[in-house]
Amino acid sequence: MSFVKNNKRYLYICLALPIALGLSYIEIDPHTFGFPFNLVLCLLCVYVSVLAGRLSEHFLFFSGRKVVGIAFITIVILMVLHWLFYHRRLFFCSFFPSVSYDFSKSALFVCLWMLFIIILGAVIVRRLTLVKQNNKWFLWNHMGLYLVLLTGFMGSTDTYTMQTILAKEQETNFAFTELGEAMKLPFHLILKDIQIQRDHTGLTIQYKAMVSLKDVQKEKTRSVAVNHPCRFKGYDIYVMQASDFGCKLQIIYDPWRYVILFSILIMISGAVVMFFKGTKIQKQDDRLG
């Protein structure tokens, strides 16, 4: 028994490693949590964050230092792991999963992401309720990050990325997902024209596709260029590749795009203030995280 007591920390690590490895092999389809489950999950996340924050005030089961330590170790491990999987082709052994494996869709990634969001939320709640001064920009920055992570994650469950290849004058109302599933679009897409601008060496400088978009009520002709997508009925249309005969279009349905953009703007404003004000080392009483 004394061995277990003395080496508790190492035993926890030994237990956590196979669990982490096991979770990393389980792939999760983000669309499983699509609307309305993502909204329920979002509210649940906020509730658990508040609960963890309030409980920690009374029972002090995690100090500010531990919270930050855990959160950062989690993220760094997450990033390193992701990097390792990204570069798995460098490792000549069969231990790593297949080439099509996407770590950001693994159960391990999702669990760590949720854990980080909850811890960050708990930190915000603790700070909101316990510390009365030097709070404004701390809360603003952390709230921005919290919103970006939460809405980014929840938004990915409702986002659909599809692609289609069209020749000139070809019409379609279908596009294909990464997995090759055909999805019906609520409008028809016709490629009218392609304009390719080349430099004196013949290399492409810019390309533009003229597309006609029509549904039951209306028909519109729009141009789609790199960095200039067009939006129709909640769908964003991007031109990915173009030749003189046809082009590859990407169609994205992302209902959370403005929510995420708003969260990003909160973070940017916080960073601008941080640039001018810098960071201050807080007093001992304020170091709650």
Binding site: Y86, T161, V226, N227, Y238, Q250, I252, L261
Partner: peptide, 10 residues
């Protein structure tokens, strides 16, 4: 987001 359609692609 404007160029490729996603804010972050890992």
């Amino acid at each position: 987001k404007e160029a490729w359609g996603h804010y972050w692609t890992w």
